[in-house]
Design a binder for these strands. Sequence first.
DNA 1: CTGAAAGCGCTTACAG
DNA 2: CTGAAAGCGCTTACAG
Lengths: 329, 329
Amino acid sequence: MTRPTLEAVAARAGVSRATVSRVVNGAANVKPDLRTAVMRAVEELGYIPNSAARSLVTRRTDSIALVVSEPPSRVFSDDPFFSAVIRAVSQQLEAADRQVILMLVSSAAGHARVERYVAGGHVDGVILLSMHGADPLPASLGRSRVPIVSHGRPASSLPVPYCDCDNHGGARAAVEHLIAQGRRRIATIAGPRDMTAAQDRLDGYRAAMGAADRPSIVAMGDFTRESGTTAMQQLLADDPEIDAVFAASDLMAIGALGALRAAGRRVPDDVAVAGFDDIGLASFSEPPLTTVRQPVADVAACIVQMLLGDEPPTAPVILPTELVIRESA
Amino acid sequence: MTRPTLEAVAARAGVSRATVSRVVNGAANVKPDLRTAVMRAVEELGYIPNSAARSLVTRRTDSIALVVSEPPSRVFSDDPFFSAVIRAVSQQLEAADRQVILMLVSSAAGHARVERYVAGGHVDGVILLSMHGADPLPASLGRSRVPIVSHGRPASSLPVPYCDCDNHGGARAAVEHLIAQGRRRIATIAGPRDMTAAQDRLDGYRAAMGAADRPSIVAMGDFTRESGTTAMQQLLADDPEIDAVFAASDLMAIGALGALRAAGRRVPDDVAVAGFDDIGLASFSEPPLTTVRQPVADVAACIVQMLLGDEPPTAPVILPTELVIRESA
DNA sequence: CTGAAAGCGCTTACAG
DNA sequence: CTGAAAGCGCTTACAG
């Protein structure tokens, strides 16, 4: 028993294949009686259109690839931010009746795999997430005629449409808050150099510090919790007088919290800590984290709109962030 | 500029489409000079076969759906066990040159979506993960002619092939270890009733306790850390004399560790704790967790073999677990 | 070893 | 409003 085809439905309903196709695809102009006959046949036979045949002619697959340039360990377990973004994007895409194909790529073999997959016509569009530096994906995918939208500003100079939150402004607001609290020596724990979100947040920090005539104190991290701990330890060793830290991600801020606790510093009394992202954990840390909320759902909606909308996106879209003040600063 | 077709490659190489197809698909019998001519044309044109056209005739897609019956929050952030399984399965599938389509389903709409996707011929096979009780998926997917293999014994009576670890034996070994340590009152924190892994581990606990003539002490959890904390608190309240706990998952064991610490009990001095899974966190908990290691990679390899192997699987496969003794028991 | 031709299961102008 | 027919881009018997 193989799956029934359009042909079988047509035979059963006593109409042509064209009519069945119209009914199945919801075309308006079919007489009610024929329509019901077809629908009954579809029902009785359990007909579901063959997607390969359909997309061969329509040149659509109703699938969108969500390509994340990170290893599985980071996406699945380490960083809840990915989970939040993936969920938000998936939800938007499902609402638009598109299937999400999640592809993680963290190797050259992975790049080749994604490229073949996209070029083979498996998807109608690609969303790029967490690109690093000179990520080869925009260029290689650009060769297929498939629309691409990046989640976050891409580092490459290629004109890839993107939506991002206001990393610069968000960071600046957090640091200004620290300054307004009367903090004297405010350091930052920056994210990885090869990511624009990290660069922009660092720039925001510098802008706020510069405007207040303060010198910058920068430690490097890579957005992970461990790196936040290490960076904080180093900051403390280098300059014991530090009384505030702006970490470019919540995970790093939480790592910093641990290092401060281990060093016997009270937060926020001795050292104020602010993060970025507002992941779920930020409310549950000890103490709860003051942070910059990314509009995850809005960015996701924006990206899907850019990808699926009628007119191709022209300008990037930057969405505002929100400073969430809790107890750590 | 649209993507080149077989036709274009054939024209450029001066051969028929059949020959191009043979070269592209690695058929043996093509004269070397024609083969090189075709390969050059493929290279020059950047030809990549259209997958819809190909799978329309071959009836293959080289994609496998990995269907996880859990909400995104659990899969992405909460439980590292999923991450481990997904990674292991993906790796096996990629090694076999198959694309993994990850589908999370935690609603009726999700079920319908998956069913349509599979029935539409998008995938060559389905791997079911984390099924709960009377999961409707085996039945509804069974109607498509697509091979299915379950990760873990399914609860339903349908004859779905599966591979699982020895949940019963693993649990029993852990409890016997606790008994051998001279523990007197050994409780268990069980997993969700509607999952066979939880049932089997509970049975293993009971078997070991029964064999040693001890009464069972059972608290219910749902495999999450929070539930482990709650269950442990309740256990302590009900029976302060408890001196050992076997938790049916590491996450619950870690939750129990927290509850014990909060209650001022030392581990393992006052209360011994054993878990199940051996997730990465198990080595880093305070104290490091004695647990039952699941052969995640082996199970993944076995499942992929069952799905892709030449002959359809007949009997289920049960793989052995390993007791990993650390400091908590 | 190679090519002409049929056909996979759909959709969509085109007539009527 | 409906149907006959062409065609999407491949693969694969079938001849030669």
